[in-house]
Amino acid sequence: MELSTKQSDGTVIVTIAQNRIDSAAAVEFKDAVKAAAQDANDRVLMDLGQVDFIDSSGLGAIIAVMKTLPTGVRLDLTSLRPPVEKVFKLTRMDSVFRIYPDMVTAQSDMAQ
């Protein structure tokens, strides 16, 4: 599982550096992001800009990560590519997460 993390104030930015979050990757993805998110005080921002495929297991893993975050820490998503956005829309999970079109917009919304 390839990802990088960057901390800024209470936010941990997690950049997923692989192009698939699929069934074969889901468990490792979940564990890696959970570990990376531990230092967040109020927000985890997951950059999915390099991900061009997600399946139901990958979607489930993102939901699982959100559910393990402490109260008061939220998981936001940014830079979804069309195939990934489609899965979120079809399953209506786009109503569960704050989803930003790009990193600049996501970061300018930090204060909220």
Partner: peptide, 21 residues
């Protein structure tokens, strides 16, 4: 059937999306 996205966060389904998709 698509899992319900309107339930509280801690009750959100983590699976069951496959056949819906």
């Amino acid at each position: 059937c698509c899992p319900d996205p309107t339930v509280p966060v801690d009750e959100l389904a983590e699976g069951g999306f496959g056949w819906f998709l």
